[in-house]
Amino acid sequence: MKKRFLKKPGAGIAAVPLWMFTLVFVAGPMVYMLILSFLTRDPSWGVVNEFTLDNYAKILNPVYAGTYLSSLKLALSTTAITLVIGYPFGYFMARLSEKWKKRLMMLVVVPFWTNALVRMYGWIIIFRSNGLLDKLLMGLGVTDAPLRLLYTYPAVLVGMVYALLPFMILSVYSSVEKMDWSLVEAARDLGASKARAFWTVTAKLTLPGVLSGVILTFIPSMGLFFIADVLGGGKFMLVGNLIRDQLFSARDWPFAAALAVILTLLTTLFLWLYRKITHVRDLEGIL
């Protein structure tokens, strides 16, 4: 990828604005955050330029370390559920006729037109006691008392999956769309059952889509905090919530910065491990 990019004459100059943008809006803030994480908090306001490792030492406190763990657990569960639902969805969507593909694509994309926070309030209406879900289940006689789903872990999980599912669907869709189906026919012709042909050919060839879907789901789910707030009722402290609270409520900027640095490192570590196990070169565009 990189090599091909550099081979084109003039590409270096053409890329200057891109490099500038990345430098100012991505690398700059990261460096600033890194520096901030080693400074000392000013008791009244802001920071004092005094080097310290206290911020990182503080993270080792089980209360904070546990927050990372529960964030990771939620992110992994979210990603797994999203994959299980999103793969078949994207797969069958790609196999529909052109007309139905477009219609379904609309349904997948339409939610993006509404603010994600607003959509989460929609889930409150569904989940709250005697809300839509309870009314439906009790009306059908499935349950006889409100489920009290709102502000529970499952509610947060549903909200996360709901918010991130389109990314998985679209990633899988685009790789299934590119499939050469004569390869599946060849596998069948050579003696593979439908299931065997799927696992040995289709699954392998659509893996890049799965991998990019996993990354597009996993990274945001490590940081999303408003879903845990809205659907978890503040009972679930995730890294995202912690950073926000340290930044805006406790006004401990250096500690917030240290938490963010560790979050970034943790996410990177996971992606690196992931890339290690999957051996897929196609990820170069994404990672």
Binding site: E185, A186, A187, R188, D189, L190, G191, A192, S193, V201
Partner: peptide, 29 residues
């Protein structure tokens, strides 16, 4: 089903599995 018939096809576009080397392709069946 095609996998139940002792018939094999050489496809027009060859349909070789791009994620397998020659040995794995030929040994697939």
């Amino acid at each position: 089903a095609p996998n139940k018939r002792n018939v094999n096809t050489v496809f027009q576009n060859y349909a070789l599995f791009p994620h397998m080397n020659v040995e794995a392709n030929v040994g697939y069946g």
